[in-house]
Design a protein around this nucleic acid. Sequence first.
DNA 1: CCTGATTGTCAGTACTACTGACGATCAGGT
DNA 2: ACCTGATCGTCAGTAGTACTGACAATCAGG
Lengths: 153, 153
Amino acid sequence: MSSTDGDGPGPELSRNLVYLLKHAQLRMAELGTNALTPYGIDGREMGVLLALADREPASQQQAAQRLGIDRTTMVALLDALERKGLVARRPHAEDRRRNVVELTDTGKETLRSAIEANDDAEREFLAPLGAQAAERLRRSLQAIVLRPDGRRT
Amino acid sequence: MSSTDGDGPGPELSRNLVYLLKHAQLRMAELGTNALTPYGIDGREMGVLLALADREPASQQQAAQRLGIDRTTMVALLDALERKGLVARRPHAEDRRRNVVELTDTGKETLRSAIEANDDAEREFLAPLGAQAAERLRRSLQAIVLRPDGRRT
DNA sequence: CCTGATTGTCAGTACTACTGACGATCAGGT
DNA sequence: ACCTGATCGTCAGTAGTACTGACAATCAGG
């Protein structure tokens, strides 16, 4: 039952970007999740940590915008990260509607390790490509995702 | 409130493949869905049609394998496509456990139009890239997704 | 001080895809 | 022919994810 009949995608399906992107994303997400489990977080949570560490301290809404997700989705994400002691909410000095969300020291440490583990996972994901092709893939995706008119999903 | 504070992803997040692939996939799926609505199908259903048209007639299970989804997921997908008159299930001559799934004439016609519309959507998706970079992106994704040891998700 | 907008929160919902179980059917050995 | 184990399509239930809509608290402008 190994190499037979209708096992893989046909030639047309293999050219379809919806198909290719979906499965690329699934595979990368799986590799990322596996790589991150030792640190008790998954890819989405690492994204939140990155969004917070990358720039100046942010409100929950700002963090959500950086990640391209809804502010209501951010609530549960931060609940989990706060429970794990990786981020802290504190009240905003001048606007009491807002929370300022920051990484704890543990969070910073965890993020450092997570980035390394995730880099390994990315290397494995990109293994079928040469170094140059890998870098071009990353740049092309950036050009598409970060294109100037970026509207919110 | 337009271009200010913490609006986009920071530099680290922008390099993260999980982030880039997720949003690339979201955008392509949205463009595809929009392009296909005139034909009454979405990207997933077009995938099914492609999987069926690409190769010899298939059982539901084979079609699912070509698409990389579970056979239980295929059931509802085919229910919808059959209701729309785009595919037909008929009993397999030699194995009565199986259904042979085929495109109807309407299905073939719809798929032709859908492919054109989807090509337009892909062009829009790839617009930030040059022609060469676009083709390289497609090939790199193929190399990653179709890599020989492709295990089932 | 009032009105309208913003922030974080929560309940409810939608969508997708899975697991587990079922009956029907097939294949192989005896 | 019979039994056992595997396969196919189906369905119910469940899990994960992210949304919409509504709410109280708070802010900003007039």
